[in-house]
Design a protein around this nucleic acid. Structure first.
Length: 856
RNA sequence: GGGCGCAUAGCUCAGUUGGUAGAGCGCAUCCUUUACAAGGAUGAUGUCGGGGGUUCGAGACCCUCUGCGCCCACCA
């Protein structure tokens, strides 16, 4: 292809995206063996959200590494997936279609939702069957995925689109269920009926990793419990509504104030229930009055007390977050039963108000409630505090309840290189601080079903200990429609028959298997052994405790090894006020597509490449403008260099200046490669970029005249060979960063895509580049003189006198002709001196007429 | 309360094993017309957060204080 008259960046994204797709430039070579492969466990973006600048940032980082590895000779396995299963998708579907799932309803064929887009605020969600709901989820996610694909392609990621997977897709479901069944068989998965943190709005159990503390306002209510002798014991509580669930009151064993009470009983205010006074070391002497009430269950400490002190269970809050309507049998006094009737059916907030009023009336509340700020556990996507409800749930062992496994998992962290290294402590700290096993069952709909059925006894009640499992060959299955071996559909729900497990798995229980899903573990192909364990897991530091850790757990159980060799942890994007960019805060205004269109993809990638692994980076359109400038410069410089014409095939740089340039380039290649190998793409870019600007500003200016042939063929041939040699290397060095403009300039003079070329290698035969520094210095001092004289850079210099050490002068002399050409220097003299300085005598310029303001 | 990280020019950041402080942006001055004015050349700008210590020598190493960010933590 010829060099265009006027090179431009316009439209190169569309052109090369189409060309790469047509040529299959990034298709994985499935014949490659593991040692030839560089495999990447790409994060599947959550399609229910929107792609934002943070994705552009972190996905570019991964692509830089992928492109470097590919050019370095590796067969790069670089898949992409969409995370479309789970609660986030359900929420989005509810919000855009105006429906909600009611599993008790029958399937309606050809169901059309009331909306596809914006649902009016006052719309009441239409209940639909589970099957209809799942259908809608699939439809909406498919649309979301198309728009995601458009942006990712436009970003120029060198992913292999033939490897596309989704986390709700058939292969993901099969993989997820298979892994679960293996965990079950290996004793790593189990079910348990126990108090569980529960989101009352979503009505599902929540795992430790999905919880967060939020500081909210509560009120200390000082309430009076009654001793048999009529005296009061005062207790501060923020949750007076849990009084009917009170099972004991507790103080620290060493607390002198309460020594005599341990072993006695008191009665609760309002409800008149007799409860023991117990001692436990977790009770804090200086918190409130030093004595607390234990309720089933107000918080996780209550669970600990309940378990360790062997207390009865008096739970009253149901799955819907409301107090049960039946008055419990442990409340026996007339007053107590009357009080309970006033809170039956209320939610915790309403009940608190009611109880506080009753306590005030009865005189059992001392003073007014005192407002405090305190941390309360929330589901990270939730709106109301979590409650604790006793339910049967499935767990996978993750070391939270066993020291040995915990230690093993912490040690697994040593099997991979962390970039940056200090991120490993996030992992170790999290594993060491686990409070329990990983709760994987969710009472939701759009997820991978737990592949289980339970046998029913003669009375038709499920025996949860009698678990029926499918054979791996039948996966994936849906226990709500598929039937266990040896049964027929007619036995579903019948005595001595079976029922299907209704729960789905947590979305992390599937996304923790991305290496297995993308690599087709246990599938038809032999892909897996060629790509696993993977070379790289790139991800954000916010999901080390979830995605990274969960993937480690699954890999540990199944393969007894870490799933990757490297983990590269990217930082966040901050706005100019150093706030984390987030849509909810209203500071993530520009859509990524808009940025890619305005600045050009290469320019945006340039900005992203300046964010080192792990470092939070300021969103800076100024940097994108710099990137744009760099891409434009690459166009112009390439055009100029190539316009000198083609040297003979065997031509090689022979002039000292040309060889010195090649030597400097050699060092740049070595440094950039070393930086890339250490996942420091930013360092590599800095090195390449600064060489490139020196190449344009100094080297090209120096050899320009010689390249035109001013001083004969030998000098011109050396210059042309050197210019082209450097240009080829520069195109390839910039290729990972600026994939579009580099492929454009490459196409002007070379066959094939630059992205299929070999990364430049160190030659080592050029000698040293010591010559370049003094040459650049002399050039700078000549330019300075002209600038200070307010003359054009093209102005002639009569005499330049260089003062420098003899050695420097001799070196300068080898490049004298180029220096004189570049500076328009008529005469160049050398004087020996300790340091390099110079005197410049500008040629007499014929003084023109005095400058006068002119019109027109 | 515990852990991790950060603090260098007006702004965003580099500063590899200690050896005279760097880049880009911005700013100032100047230069257009045979690569590039959406350009080029040149220049100014720092008590390296404070205080101690080690050393011939500290932006780098040690201690300490301050400020900021993130993660974690039993909600009475």
């Amino acid at each position: 292809m010829a060099i265009p008259e006027k090179p431009t960046l316009d439209g190169i994204e569309e052109r090369f995206v189409a060309q790469w797709e047509a040529d299959g430039t990034y298709i994985f070579d499935r014949s490659a063996t593991r040692d030839q492969v560089y495999s990447i466990d790409t994060p599947p973006p959550t399609v229910s959200g929107s792609l934002h600048i943070g994705h552009i940032f972190s996905y570019t980082h991964t692509d830089l590494i992928a492109r470097y590895q590919r050019m370095s000779g590796k067969k790069v396995f670089y898949p992409i997936g969409w995370d479309d299963n789970g609660l986030a998708t359900e929420r989005r579907v509810q919000n855009v279609t105006g429906v909600r799932c009611d599993p008790s309803l029958p399937y309606v064929p050809n169901f059309q939702p009331p909306f596809r887009g914006d649902v009016p605020k006052d719309h009441r969600a239409v209940p639909v069957s589970r099957a209809n709901f799942v259908e809608l989820c699939a439809e909406i996610t498919h649309l979301d995925e198309q728009s995601f694909e458009h942006v990712i392609r436009r970003l120029g990621l060198s992913v292999d689109w033939t490897l596309l997977y989704t986390t709700i897709g058939e292969r993901a479901r099969r993989t997820s269920q298979r892994a679960f069944l293996r965990n079950l068989a290996g004793g790593h998965a189990y079910q348990q009926d126990a108090p569980t943190l529960w989101d009352i709005d979503e009505q599902t159990a929540v795992a430790q990793a999905e919880m967060e503390d939020r500081e909210i306002t509560g009120s200390y209510h000082r309430i009076a419990f009654h001793k048999p002798d009529g005296e009061s014991i005062l207790i501060d509580t923020t949750r007076p509504e849990l009084l009917p669930s009170c099972v004991a009151i507790v103080a620290h064993p060493s607390d002198e104030r309460y020594q005599k009470l341990f072993g006695t009983t008191v009665t609760t205010p309002l409800f008149g229930v007799e409860v023991p006074v117990v001692a436990h070391h977790l009770a804090e002497v200086d918190k409130g009055t030093g004595i607390a009430m234990i309720c089933t269950f107000g918080d996780v400490t209550d669970v600990t007390w309940w378990r360790e002190l062997d207390l009865p269970s008096r739970a009253l809050i149901g799955f819907d977050g409301r107090f049960t309507s039946e008055t419990p049998e442990w409340i026996t006094t007339d007053g107590g039963r009357a009080a309970y009737e006033k809170i039956a059916g209320l939610n915790p907030k309403q009940a608190q108000r009611a109880v506080a009023e009753m306590l005030a009336t009865s005189g059992e509340m001392i003073g007014e409630p005192r407002e405090i700020k305190h941390p309360v556990k929330f589901y990270e996507r939730g709106h109301r505090p979590l409650e604790i409800v006793a339910t049967r749930q499935w767990y996978i062992r993750n070391g939270g309840r066993g020291e040995r496994l915990r230690d093993e998992l912490v040690k697994r962290g040593n099997e991979l290189a962390w970039h940056p290294a200090y991120m490993q402590s996030r992992y170790s700290d999290w594993v060491a601080g686990l409070k329990g096993d990983w709760l994987i069952s969710r009472q939701r709909y759009f997820g991978v079903p737990l592949p289980l059925w339970y046998r029913l006894d003669a009375a038709g009640n499920p025996n949860f200990d009698d678990v029926l499992v499918p054979s791996e060959a039948d996966l994936p299955i849906d226990p709500s429609t598929d039937v266990p071996t040896g049964f027929t559909e007619s036995q579903r729900g019948e005595p001595n028959g079976f029922i299907g497990e209704g729960d789905v798995m947590d979305t992390w229980a599937t996304s923790s298997l991305t290496p297995q899903i993308a690599g087709d573990w246990e599938g038809e192909s032999d892909l897996f052994r060629r790509v696993y364990p993977m070379d790289l897991r790139p991800q954000g530091h916010d999901i080390i405790r979830t995605w990274l850790f969960a993937t480690m757990v699954r890999s540990h159980h199944e393969f007894e090894g870490a799933p990757w060799r490297n983990a590269s942890i990217n930082g966040f994007i901050l706005d100019p006020d150093r706030k984390k960019l987030a849509k909810s805060k209203g500071n993530a205004t520009s859509t990524p597509l808009h940025l890619l269109e305005e600045h050009g993809t290469d320019a945006v990638r340039y900005w992203a490449a300046n964010g080192r692994p792990g470092v939070d980076t300021i969103f800076d359109e100024g940097q994108m403008k710099v990137g744009r400038k760099l891409a434009t410069k690459l166009l112009n410089a390439s055009k100029f260099v190539l316009a000198f014409g083609t040297p003979p095939d065997i031509a090689t740089p022979t002039e000292p200046l040309d060889r010195a340039m090649a030597a400097r380039l050699d060092r740049v290649i070595a440094d950039a490669s070393k930086a890339f190998d250490a996942y420091d793409y930013t360092g590599a870019l800095e090195r390449i970029e600064s060489f490139f600007w020196w190449f344009c500003d100094d080297y090209v200016e120096l050899v320009k005249s010689r390249a035109y042939g001013t001083h004969g063929e030998a000098g011109a041939t050396s210059a042309l060979a050197a210019l082209r040699f450097a240009l080829s290397a520069l195109h390839r060095l910039f290729a990972p960063f600026l994939p579009f403009v580099t492929d454009e300039v490459w196409s002007w003079w070379q066959a094939g895509s630059v992205h299929a070329q070999q990364w430049p290698t160190v030659d080592g035969t050029w000698g040293d580049d010591a010559l370049l520094e003094p040459v650049s210095e002399v050039l700078a001092l000549v330019r300075r003189a002209k600038t200070e004289a307010k003359a054009s850079q093209k102005a002639d210099i009569a005499i330049l006198t260089v003062h420098a050490p003899a050695k420097t002068n001799m070196a300068l002399a080898t490049a004298e002709r180029d220096l004189r050409d570049a500076g328009s220097i008529a005469s160049l003299r050398y004087v020996e001196a300790d340091e390099l300085t110079g005197e410049v005598e500008l040629a007499q310029v014929t003084a023109g007429p005095p400058t006068t303001p002119t019109s027109g």
